[in-house]
Design a protein around this nucleic acid. Structure first.
Length: 506
RNA sequence: GGGCCGCUAGCUCAAUUGGCAGAGCAGCUGACUCUUAAUCAGCCGGUUGAAGGUUCGAGUCCUUCGCGGCUCACCA
């Protein structure tokens, strides 16, 4: 095959066509170049999107089939081509949708060269918006131009792209072939935008805090490590946004939020991805009850705004996200769903024995909080299908939350659950620096006792806290999980554009 | 990490007990000036994920490896 040099004198990394289909498309591009037509022109004119053309035609009165005096320039990817001999229909897909184009031999000059158009190419057309005999909005084209020659065939036009590996590894193919994938990621973007509008309207300031940190903080999780060459120090990728946002509240920003990526070097599952997007908000002069009210309002109003409804289907459940959500305490829920009575089993040993008697996994290294967590996962979590705030957690589970007045064993904390999984977490934030130091020290004791998942002490944060943080309500929500709920996707990987994949080894 | 399942043409899928690797879409050639999963006729297209093994014969059975999905464990 003849291949021209990309630029004179330089090395040319020519890729041999991988198959016959690619070779044919390369040959078509060459043929265009040989006849003086660039198959990759610099720019084009677009006056109308597919949706705009469709709207023009649909606005026509009954009986009229042409938009008088209007000609449009449209552009898009060729997703179907129906050659009728002396007339050809192509379907163009652009960001707004699809529009059919009719090209007739006696209406355009380069009709014969339509054979150079393959599925997947981008082309531009000029013509009049009409309604066909079957009523289909269509551009009756008088000119067409190649905008981009595609060298590979797109996925099958009717069945789309089904192979889950290719869908994730080459998301661009998934997006071009599957409407549902485009819908999911469009909704994702709209949800995040709606969250920002909601918080901005309430006077929250969006901020950005470091991803590369000296040590992990704000949660109990294994971090990813990296090296900071310029200062020759180790860094970890953040596992939480929490402690930096609190520093900002200490500094005087009364309402802040961040939407950002967290990284936890742990397992993957339908609801866990090593890098995931978290929303955290901190609001001075409120508490976890105030945060709960904001949470149900945020989620239900975002759903209404983006989906037009608060009712969703998820994992076989019909769920209504409308506020108010149910509120139940940790201890009451444990009783309600048949778990151990935490007011009876008040020591680590007693609770461990009771859980073992019930056949629930209760490792010897687990402290009281960890055991409560086990019991919660086993008895409570699967039952919280409709949106529910689970309130007042055991103190051992929550080293950053303020004690509940009148009860030394509990803290003011909620997690919210939908469809049996957690999607939010909030505290009345602990702002007593002496108490906070004791809580960190207790975590260190747990670590020495063998619990690997503990909150690490952060001296710099403690020093900040010693300068005074006003009473504050804080909130965190996994955005990916919210998107799963709002789009009905069963796997977190289906709401992440480029989920991590193992390398393809040769 | 464990268990189960999958990997066949560019894409979507077949292939009987181990017995000639097939179809649709896409592509190529031809017919057709209102089709829309266009239709009709003909044609092209394969290292069956990889490497070994058993067998007269392997897409199919065995072993190892790779990648993916589901699930369990861990975690949020």
């Amino acid at each position: 095959m003849h291949v021209r040099a990309a630029c004179d004198g330089g090395p040319f990394l020519w890729r041999e066509p991988v198959d016959e289909l690619m070779a044919q498309r390369v040959a078509k591009a060459e043929e265009m170049r040989d006849s003086g037509v660039d198959p990759y022109p610099l720019r084009t004119i677009r006056t109308h999107t597919a949706a705009e053309v469709t709207a023009l035609v649909e606005a026509l009165p009954e009986g009229e089939n042409e938009v008088a005096g209007v000609e449009v320039d449209a552009a898009g990817r060729v997703v179907a081509k129906r050659d009728m001999g002396k007339a050809t229909f192509i379907d163009l897909q652009d960001g707004s949708g699809r529009i059919q184009v009719l090209l007739r031999q006696n209406a355009i000059e380069n009709y014969e060269s339509l054979r150079l158009i393959d599925l997947g190419d981008f082309v531009g057309v000029h013509g009049a918006p009409i309604r066909t005999r079957t009523g289909q909005p269509t551009i009756q084209s008088t000119e067409w131009t190649m905008l981009t020659k595609a060298l590979h065939a797109p996925p099958e036009k009717f069945h789309g792209l089904a192979d889950p590996e290719i869908r994730q590894r080459r998301r661009y193919l998934d997006l071009m072939a599957n409407d549902e994938t485009r819908r999911v990621f469009t909704v994702r973007s709209q949800v995040v935008a709606a969250i920002r509008r909601f918080l901005d309207a309430r006077g929250f300031l969006e901020v950005e805090t470091p991803i590369l940190q000296e040590s992990e903080s704000g949660a109990a999780a294994k971090p990813f490590y990296t090296h900071f060459n310029a200062i020759d120090e180790q860094r970890v990728l953040r596992i939480s946004l929490e402690l930096h946002l609190k520093r900002l509240v200490i500094g005087g920003f009364e309402r802040v939020y961040e939407i950002g990526r967290n990284f936890r070097n742990e397992g993957m599952s339908f609801k866990h991805n090593p890098e995931f997007t978290m929303l955290e908000t901190y609001e001075a002069y409120t508490d976890y009850i105030g945060v709960a009210a904001m949470t149900e309002e945020l989620v239900s109003s975002v759903a209404r705004e983006v989906l037009g409804t608060t009712e969703i289907e998820f994992r076989g459940h019909h769920i209504d996200l409308a506020a108010p959500w149910r509120r139940v305490t940790f201890i009451d829920a444990m009783r309600e769903y048949g778990g151990p009575d935490l007011e009876v089993f008040t020591t680590t040993d007693e609770l461990r024995q009771e859980l073992r008697r019930r056949g629930v996994d209760a490792p010897a290294t687990a402290g009281y909080g960890k055991l409560c967590d086990e019991a919660m996962s086993h008895y409570i979590e699967p039952n919280l299908i409709q949106p529910t705030f689970l309130l007042d957690y055991p103190i051992e589970l929550s080293p950053l939350a303020k004690r509940k007045p009148g009860n030394d064993r509990l803290v003011e904390r909620f997690e919210c659950f939908v469809a049996g999984f957690e999607c939010g977490n909030a505290y009345t934030e602990l702002n007593d620096p002496i108490e906070q130091r004791k809580r960190f020290e207790h975590q260190m004791l747990l670590k020495e006792a063998g619990d690997e998942e503990v909150e690490m002490v952060d001296e710099d944060f403690l020093f900040a806290l010693e300068h005074g943080m006003p009473p504050t309500g804080g909130f965190g929500m996994g955005i990916d999980r919210l998107i799963m709920l709002l789009t009905g996707q069963d796997s977190i990987r289906d709401v992440i554009l480029f989920p991590p994949m193992k390398s393809l080894k040769e």
